[in-house]
Design a protein around this nucleic acid. Structure first.
Length: 259
DNA sequence: ATGGTGGTCAAACCA
C-alpha cells in the first residue's frame, strides 16, 4: 500500500498538477492540506474518475484538509475534537478515516506566524489537543499514522540555514517539544529519503528562487505507530512535484507499506 | 535594493 501526504496550496489552482501526480505516483491513500476551498467546492468528479473516494473538510478561503483513498474510506471524522478555537472558530485543519487496514489523519497544523503572536500559542494548544485525540489509535494494534503539514522542523538540519531562523517559528524549543510530546502518545517519525541533496526538504518558499537554491524546510511529516512503522518498506519526498509551473510550494511525502 | 511569489477574491490577508 502506498500512502502519501501533500500540502497542495489550493486544490482548485493545483488540480491539473495533482491529477497528473495521482496518475503517475498512484498512491492508494493521499492526505491533502490547504485545500483553500469549502468541502462543497472540492473537485470530486475529477478525482473520483481516477478511482478515488474522497472525504473533504473545508470551510472557505484558508485551511481545508482531505483524504483520498482507493482502498476504502470509512469512519470519517472531520475536525479535531477538543481542539482550540482561533478567533472564535474551530478551523478545518484535521480529518481522519480508515482506509483498508490503516487509519490515517490528515493534519494542517497552525503556522504560528511569530513567537509573540496569538497564533503561536494556538499552534501549541492545537498540537496538545492532537496528542489527546490520537492517543487511543496510536496505542492500538491497527496500523495508524498522522500525516500532514506540521509547520515544525524537527531538528536544525531540517532547515536550509538554521542561523537565519533565530527567533522564528517552526524551529522553537516549544514547538519541537510539542512534537516530542505527540510522539509520546506512541508515534515515531517515518524518515523519508531525499531524491536529491542530503536533507529531504518538503517545502520551499515561492520567493527568492527558494526551490532552485534548495532553500527548503522539512515540515511535512509522517508519524506512525509501531504497527504502521513496522510495515514501512520505503519513504521519500517527491521533489519533482515541486518543479516547474503551477506547483504547490510543498512536495508530497510518499510511504510504501507492506500491507 | 527593506522587496521579492502565489493563493483567495477583488483589498487585504495568509503562507
Amino acid at each position: 500500500m502506498r500512502v502519501a501526504t501533500w500540502n497542495i496550496n489550493s486544490v482548485g489552482a493545483r488540480l491539473p498538477r495533482m491529477l497528473e501526480w495521482l496518475e503517475g505516483a498512484a498512491p492508494d491513500v493521499l492526505c491533502l492540506q490547504e485545500l483553500k476551498c469549502t468541502a462543497d467546492a472540492f473537485p470530486y468528479e475529477a478525482v473520483e474518475a481516477l478511482g478515488y473516494q474522497v472525504a473533504a473538510h473545508g470551510d472557505g478561503r484558508w485551511n481545508g484538509v482531505a483524504i483520498l483513498s482507493k482502498v476504502g474510506l470509512e469512519d470519517v471524522v472531520r475536525g479535531l475534537e477538543g481542539g482550540p478555537e482561533y478567533e472564535g472558530v474551530q478551523e478545518t485543519r484535521a480529518i481522519s478515516a480508515t482506509c483498508g487496514s490503516v487509519r490515517v489523519w490528515s493534519v494542517y497544523v497552525p503556522n504560528g506566524r511569530e513567537l509573540v503572536h496569538a497564533h503561536y500559542a494556538y499552534k501549541l494548544e492545537w498540537l496538545t489537543a492532537l496528542k489527546a485525540a490520537v492517543a487511543f489509535d496510536a496505542a492500538g494494534e491497527r496500523p495508524f499514522a498522522v500525516l500532514g503539514d506540521f509547520n515544525v522542523a524537527p531538528t536544525d538540519k531540517d532547515v536550509w540555514d538554521i542561523t537565519l531562523f533565530e527567533g522564528a517559528t517552526h524551529v522553537s524549543e516549544a514547538e519541537r517539544t510539542a512534537l516530542v510530546e505527540l510522539g509520546k502518545a506512541g508515534l515515531e517519525e517515518v524518515m523519508p529519503r531525499a531524491l536529491k541533496y542530503d536533507v529531504p526538504f518538503t517545502f520551499w518558499d515561492y520567493r527568492n528562487l527558494g526551490f532552485q537554491k534548495n532553500k527548503g524546510m522539512r515540515i511535512d511529516l509522517v508519524m506512525g505507530n509501531p504497527a504502521f512503522n513496522a510495515a514501512v518498506k520505503d519513504s521519500y519526498v517527491d521533489r519533482e512535484a515541486r518543479r516547474g509551473k503551477g506547483t504547490s510550494d510543498h512536495a508530497p511525502v510518499v510511504v510504501d507499506l507492506d500491507l
